[in-house]
Nucleic acid binder design. Structure first.
Lengths: 197, 197
DNA sequence: ACGGTGATTGACTGATCGGTACACCTTCCC
DNA sequence: GGGAAGGTGTACCGATCAGTCAATCACCGT
């Protein structure tokens, strides 16, 4: 199996797991829907857990790349980029394929902290946190780590609520709250508040 | 089976599902660990889904009762009660048995919006939102629904991050962010800010 | 054209899944 | 004591689980 074939398999497995859950999807179904026989899959991934880890690694890379590039396109000023994170978030939440955060689901199904899957999910969130902290620092926040942590709570909450209720409302609420938190954390009024009517 | 026996079964199933996940725990294990035979369980619950729904209903009731009473004890002034929600949240996140939100996990494993389990999870969050909105209204917020939605994002985010990373940090961050959001949403300075370092 | 080699496969394993058939055993009224 | 009634446990159903293996396929240098 070529490297590209392998990546294609992981990509397809990613989609299937994302739509159906990890425990609920069996390897037989992965084999059937990807067109790759189970034996071949097990040649490249020792266990189902290994395959899941590969999908998580791929998704982590794809998602963070997408986010960083989207934010770069949406804004150029550091303070505006902090807000642009929430514009990008809205775009994601409003996608019709949106089904919540894959890593949150993974950690929900593999909750043992000793599980590599749980660890991979935690690592993804940690890398995001570092990215937000860098943005907050460039924007001039007094305590960039604190602001980044606060914004991450909003983002995770918005993902959860968007999955359970209205994605529009979750995105708008997160953006409004982020505006307040960012404004409170930046020294000057670097970010204009929306009119309070 | 008496009503109390039935409730005990649901309570035990709740604990087992919470610790092990819904799909990952089989009915055989529920029977073995509760000491009630599978046949008896199926006499009272038509399907596994029915049993899960019963555990979710029980947990919804227990959790919201706990939260409301805890907030009543922790604070008496309306504005302080909004903050007390985050004190209660901290207590929960720091419990050694804390494993994330049961409803978030349920909706992660049963993501089809048509699933009654997904609906029950959404309903739980909706009831919480209504409670927060009532608190925000009594505290004098100009747009209580908006403030309540923002606070709920913080809470959901804190639950997620506490499960993946440090519960202490998640609780502290949520409390600090809530303070900022509440202060910005209330007309007077009803809630004193913490010192800025 | 051919022998060899590594990738691929369909068919299989024992275990477990959600759910059920039936025999049993208590309980109660008489 | 007899018998009806209903709750309970054992043993089982077909389906599916993660994972394996002997046989087969495609491709390569010669």
């Amino acid at each position: 199996m070529s490297a590209s074939k392998r990546e294609e398999l992981v990509q397809n497995a990613l989609t299937i797991f994302y739509e159906g859950g990890f425990n609920a999807i069996g390897m037989d179904r992965i084999a059937a829907e990807t067109g790759v026989s189970k034996t071949s899959i097990y040649k490249h991934f020792r266990t189902k857990e290994d395959l899941i880890l590969a999908t998580l690694r791929l998704h982590d890379e794809q998602f963070r790349n997408w986010l960083v590039r989207r934010v770069e396109v949406l804004a150029s000023e550091p303070a505006q980029r902090l807000l642009a994170v929430f514009d990008a978030l809205r775009e994601w939440l409003l996608e019709p394929e949106f089904r919540g955060c894959m890593f949150v689901k993974a950690s929900a199904e593999f909750q043992d902290r000793a599980s590599p899957i749980h660890a991979a999910s935690a690592e993804h969130k940690r890398l995001l946190q570092i990215y937000f902290e860098k943005l907050a620092d460039k924007a001039g926040a007094g305590h960039p780590g604190e602001l980044a942590a606060q914004l991450q709570l909003l983002i995770e909450g918005a993902i959860t609520i968007a999955h359970l209720h209205d994605p529009h409302l979750a995105a708008e609420t997160a953006g409004a709250a982020a505006r307040v938190l960012i404004n409170a954390a930046l020294p000057a009024n670097a970010v204009p508040m929306v009119a309070e009517d």
